[in-house]
Amino acid sequence: MSYRVGYLGPEATFTHMAVNRFFSDKTRIPYPTIPDCIDAAANGEIDFAVVPLENAIEGSVNITIDYLIHEQPLTIVGEITVPVRQHLLVHPNHAAVWKDVQAVYSHPHAIAQCHKFLNTHVKGVPTGDMTSTSAAAKYVKEHPEQVIAAIANEAAAQKYGLTIVQQDIHTHQNNHTKFIVLHNGQAEVLSNEQEPRVEKTTWMIMLPSDYAGALYQVLAAFAWRKLNLSKIESRPMKTGLGNYFFLIDVEGSYDNVLQHGVKMELEALGCSVTLLGNYPCYSL
């Protein structure tokens, strides 16, 4: 079956890299923003949407979480983790004088991931935020008269004909980004040539108001059943100060968790429990 896969563009971003490697035989369509990509999946323009969820250094991508919860409640059907390697790119005309760059452009997360290098090698040089690392590389390409640089990946350097003057400038070497695959409804199980690293179930849980010890009891429902929680994160409900929901990732299939009656126990405590997805997780 020929699926259409949307992703946070433009080309030569890390999202594009993840899509190319996982959906190499599918039609791939870039979208300028995360909401645009998610909306396209909700409206049936595409079959799957691939958007960033979390970076190992900078943490969660809040716009993805908030839009998924508050605007377009799609189903998570897969997770793809890719390594992130950030390089310093300049126009070939300025490769010999890269230390004299007048500005460095990139996505805010990429700039933050490379703060130690920037502070050491181009200290005091202003940075400029762009919508993506690829957009930063394109900007450098389009302004050859300026001695400026971009932080981006190797694919961006190749696409825009830039020179990599410093490789792997990210501060922490164990840098990875997780992307989630979204679908409007129940989709076929995602498959890849490699085996999934783990199967995961993600729940959104809202605690009952004014209930002392409610979070403790929620966690206990998983703990005494020896179910491993790989992530717990709180986000504001946007209904007033102090109102939060929790995202909980449980390793294992949804059927296995249900079999132990966790959902029934949580609802008996007065919690609202919503399944966001049960899906395979791949590391590329």
Rank of each mutant, 00 (worst) to 15 (best):
L68G: 02
N62Q: 13
A137E: 07
G59T: 00
V82F: 11
P126I: 11
L68E: 04
R85I: 14
T64D: 08
E79T: 05
V140N: 01
H87Q: 06
H107E: 02
I80P: 00
K141H: 08
T81G: 05
I65G: 06
I80Q: 07
V77L: 13
K99H: 12
T64I: 01
L68V: 00
T64K: 11
P126L: 10
P73V: 09
N62W: 11
V61A: 04
Y105E: 13
V104I: 14
N93D: 09
G128W: 06
T131V: 07
G78Y: 10
I76R: 15
S132G: 04
V90D: 03
F117D: 04
P126N: 13
P83W: 14
P73E: 12
V101A: 10
V140S: 02
M130V: 02
V140Y: 01
H115F: 09
L89K: 05
E79A: 13
K116T: 06
I111K: 00
A56D: 08
G59N: 03
C114F: 04
C114G: 03
H70R: 15
K138I: 01
G78E: 06
V125E: 11
K123R: 06
I111L: 11
I63H: 13
K138C: 11
A137Y: 07
Y105Q: 12
D66H: 10
T64C: 04
N62R: 14
Q86T: 13
H109Y: 09
H109N: 10
G78K: 09
E71F: 14
T131N: 06
A137L: 12
H87P: 00
K123T: 05
I63A: 10
V122A: 03
Y67Q: 11
S106Y: 01
A103M: 14
N119P: 00
G59K: 06
N93Y: 08
A136S: 01
P83E: 14
N119C: 03
K138Y: 09
H94S: 06
T120W: 05
V104H: 03
H121Q: 08
D100G: 14
A110K: 06
S60F: 12
G128F: 13
T120A: 13
N55F: 02
N93F: 02
L74C: 03
T131I: 10
W98H: 11
K116Q: 08
L89N: 03
G78W: 12
A136R: 00
D100Q: 13
F117M: 05
W98D: 04
R85T: 15
D129V: 08
H87D: 07
K99P: 02
H87G: 03
A103P: 02
V140M: 02
